[in-house]
Design a protein around this nucleic acid. Structure first.
Lengths: 193, 193
DNA sequence: GACCGTTGCCAACACTTGTTGGCAAACACT
DNA sequence: AGTGTTTGCCAACAAGTGTTGGCAACGGTC
C-alpha cells in the first residue's frame, strides 16, 4: 500500500510519527486502551489529533503500531540447562524495566480484544518457539510455555499494573532468586514435584 | 447514612437491585470498567439506566458494590503444612470458576485506579493475613504473600482474561499439580531453591 | 518563479458516555 | 378513599469520543 521501503526516503514527518508513537506507548501503558485518548496522545506529542489519524488511520491502527513488540528472547539452546529459569526471569525483568510497550500491551489486553489477540500471538509464537528449542517432549511444550507465561505475566501484572507493594518493593535480584526455580520447574520438571 | 439494617424491610426494589448487580458483574467481567456501560448493564437487567444511578449513585458506586469480594480463604493453620500450596491453588480455581466477581476485578484493575486499589486491599489484607497464620518469619510474610499473588493472578490473567490456549485447555487438576509446588515454595521455602 | 505533494491546524460532525429532573403508575397505610 | 412514599420510565443535558474535510504554510523540482 504505502511506498516500498526505499532506504533513501527520510521523510520530514518521520520525527512526528516517532513522537506520536512514543506518546502513544506512554499513554497506553499508563491508562490502558480506552482511557488513552487520541487527543491526549496528540497533546503529549505536541501535534494535532488529526495528524494521528492521517499517519495511523485509526486508534486501532495506532495501537497496532505502538504494540509491535519482540520479546528478544535469547537462544535457550545455548543456555546451560540448569540456568534456564534464571536466564528467563532476568531477561524479562530487564526487558520490562526498559520498555513500556509490554506494560501497554498488558494493560490493554485486559479490555481490548485485539490487544488480547496480539498478546496470545506473542506468547504462543515467540515463547513457545523458544521453549521448543531445547529437548523436552514436544507434546508438553505448549503447556510448559503457558505455565511460564502465567508466572511471568503475573509478575508483571502485580508489579507494574496493580503495583502490589511487596512486589514493587522487592529488588529485581530477589525476584530472580525466588521466581527462577519456578520457571526452571515449568520448563524442565514434572508436575507434582 | 442509609437506614440501619432492619431485618424487617424486604423492599420491593431489592429484586431490581440484585438484577442490576448481577448484570454489572457480568459486564464488568466481560468488558472491563470503561467498556461496560451503564446503558448496557441496565439493558441486561431490563430496567432503565436512571435506576442504576438512583440505587448506586454513580458508575463508581456501582462498581464498588459489584466488586465487593471475599476470598473466603480456608484457615491455613488447620491445613497440613505439606499441603498448603495444593490447598490454595485448588481453592482459588474453584472460587474463580464459580464467581465472576474476581475476573471483573482483575479486568477492571488494569485500567481503573479504584479497582486496582481494591485489588491491593484484598490481597494485602486477606491473603497476607492468611499467610501470617502459620509460623514463618513475620518479616517475610508480605513478600511470600506477594509472590503467591503473582502466580495466582498470573494464572487467572492467562486463563480467564487473555485466554492463552494452553492455559484454557489444561484441566484444573493438572493446573493444581503444576502450580501447587510453586505456591508451596513461596509459602514455606527459601529463595534460590 | 510556478508547480505540486507534504505537513500541519482548525472547525466541525456524528455518536456515545455518565448523569439529572420531572412525571406517571404502583404501592402502603390509615 | 386519600395520603405520601416508592418504583419506574422518558427525555434531555453537558461533556468527551473517534473521525473527517478543508485550507494555509512549507518543501523540493523543473
Amino acid at each position: 500500500m504505502t511506498a516500498p521501503a526505499q532506504p533513501t526516503s527520510p521523510r520530514r514527518s518521520d520525527a512526528t510519527r516517532a513522537a506520536i508513537l512514543r506518546a502513544a506507548r506512554e499513554r497506553f501503558a499508563a491508562d490502558g486502551y480506552e482511557r488513552a485518548t487520541i487527543r491526549a496522545i496528540a497533546a503529549d506529542a505536541q501535534i494535532d489529533p488529526s495528524m494521528v489519524m492521517r499517519y495511523y488511520g485509526s486508534k486501532e491502527g495506532l495501537f497496532a503500531a505502538a504494540a509491535e513488540f519482540d520479546l528478544r528472547l535469547p537462544d535457550l539452546a545455548a543456555v546451560p540447562p540448569q540456568q534456564l529459569g534464571e536466564t528467563l526471569v532476568r531477561h524479562f525483568l530487564t526487558r520490562w524495566e526498559g520498555d513500556e510497550t509490554l506494560v501497554a500491551l498488558l494493560r490493554a489486553a485486559s479490555t481490548n480484544p485485539g490487544a488480547a489477540e496480539r498478546m496470545r500471538g506473542i506468547f504462543a509464537d515467540q515463547l513457545t518457539a523458544a521453549v521448543a528449542t531445547f529437548g523436552t517432549d514436544p507434546a508438553t511444550t505448549a503447556r510448559r510455555a503457558g505455565l511460564v507465561a502465567s508466572q511471568i505475566l503475573g509478575l508483571a501484572y502485580t508489579r507494574y499494573v496493580v503495583r502490589l507493594p511487596p512486589m514493587v518493593d522487592t529488588t529485581p535480584e530477589d525476584l530472580v532468586s525466588w521466581v527462577a526455580p519456578t520457571l526452571q520447574r515449568y520448563l524442565t520438571g514434572t508436575p507434582g514435584s
